[in-house]
Write a protein that binds this DNA or RNA. Structure first.
Length: 396
DNA sequence: AAGTCGTGGAA
DNA sequence: TTTCCAAGACT
């Protein structure tokens, strides 16, 4: 029995000859306008792979994980640095999580790096005695890839269509936006995912899945942009319902977002008598998992910032400190909260640090800080600390 | 199944 | 300046 639901209101199917025409027009547009210089989509000699020709899945897998919620131009330098340090799967498996996080610092969503490292071990096991440098030794099916940590349907589909040119649909941010406009989807994209996957699968060119998927993402990134799309250049403008009805700006329909809380965080850069400073490694779970930081915590309404720092270091590390001068105050936004970090230089008084709410803590010389992976806000604190120490030693 | 997870580019 | 939001996954 077919019960009408909300999603059925935009149930959509194109005729096969229309889809064929759309595929052809998109691929023609792609040949002329697409992004063809993406390093992990080229062969080792720099040339484009033939239709159906396999590429080395290793570099593609790394890139696709880096690309989750991250723009192409941000990823490229990280990917190149990564491939220099970990050129093969074996190199990665033989590395340490510390070194892996060092290569991820500044890129965000750090659980990706730890899951990637975990998946590397599973992949090498799956490959077994076969040659990991040969593409045919790697899994080429959706189920195997999706079983790995940190790899969902879109990332798995990207890897499979990019590396093996196998027909696998995608549904990333670009496709969601393009599809939403194409069919004038009245619902927020995240509330009708199965329909959207169906649309992506309908459109997919099964003869050229690698180029087609890349073309669709390029179309989203370069033409069907979030703001001010270049509809006049779009190969699908005559197929687009939003364009035909002059309602491009109405799509995609956004779901309501909750306001971000604002918090003040007190941070202590604690100096020991020997000139070392105290850092700790965050728990694997939660925000910035596995990364190192200067200790601190959220200011309570009734206390001032110095009281916050004294209390937090007592609660988290069981140490007593004297809070000194302000090092830096900086605003920093995460996905779901806005923070203001107020960082003070502190002097250690008593208590051997105990990692009560972290994995471990360590006294390090300031010049050793670059050997630890820090999130972006902490990197700014380190820069401020270096300036501070330089001015201390070279007073004008 | 809504919330949680970073950062920086772009307007 | 603030605001949006990106080649999403996980719980």
């Amino acid at each position: 029995m077919n019960i009408p639901s909300g999603e059925d209101s935009f149930d959509f199917a194109w005729k096969s000859d229309k889809i064929t025409a759309m595929q052809k027009r998109l691929l023609v547009w792609f040949q002329v306008n697409g992004r063809h210089e993406i390093p992990w989509k080229l062969k080792s000699d720099g040339s484009k792979p033939q239709q159906g020709e396999a590429l080395n899945p290793y570099g593609i897998w790394i890139a696709e994980v880096m690309l989750q919620q991250t723009q192409l131009k941000v990823v490229v330098p990280y990917w190149e640095n990564w491939m220099e340090s970990f050129p093969t799967l074996r190199d990665l498996v033989n590395a340490t999580e510390h070194k892996v996080l060092m290569h991820w610092q500044g890129l965000g969503y750090y659980s990706r790096a730890r899951r990637l490292f975990s998946a590397a071990k599973s992949l090498l096991e799956w490959i077994g005695d076969a040659d990991p440098l040969a593409p045919e030794s790697w899994p080429n099916d959706l189920e195997t890839w999706m079983a790995l940590p940190g790899i969902g349907r879109t990332t798995a589909g990207s890897i499979i269509s990019s590396a093996f040119d196998r027909p696998t649909p995608l549904l990333d941010g670009n496709l969601k936006r393009v599809l939403s406009r194409l069919v004038a989807n009245p619902m927020p994209m995240n509330s009708c995912l199965s329909r959207s996957w169906d649309l992506s699968n309908q459109l997919l060119d099964r003869q050229n899945p690698r180029d087609f998927n890349q073309a669709l993402m390029d179309l989203g990134a370069m033409v069907c942009k979030p703001h001010n799309p270049n509809c006049c250049e779009c190969p699908w403008k005559l197929d687009c319902i939003a364009y035909a009805s002059s309602r491009i700006k109405d799509f995609p329909v956004k779901s309501s977002s909750s306001p971000m809380p604002n918090q003040v965080i007190g941070i202590g850069v604690v100096f020991n008598n020997d000139g070392t400073v105290l850092i700790d490694q965050r728990l694997d779970e939660g925000l910035l998992g596995g990364m190192w930081e200067f200790p601190g915590g959220k200011k309570e309404p009734e206390e001032n910032i110095k009281e916050t720092i004294v209390r937090e270091l007592r609660e988290e590390l069981a140490i007593e400190v004297e809070v000194g001068e302000l090092l830096i105050a900086l605003d920093h936004s995460y996905s779901h909260k806005k923070l203001c970090f107020v960082v003070h230089i502190c002097r250690w008084i008593s208590g051997d640090p105990v990692p009560l709410e972290s994995q471990q803590c360590r006294w390090v010389r300031p010049d050793e800080l670059n050997q630890y992976p820090f999130p972006a806000a902490n990197s700014k604190m380190i820069s401020a600390l270096k300036n501070y120490l330089q001015q201390k030693t070279n007073p004008l």
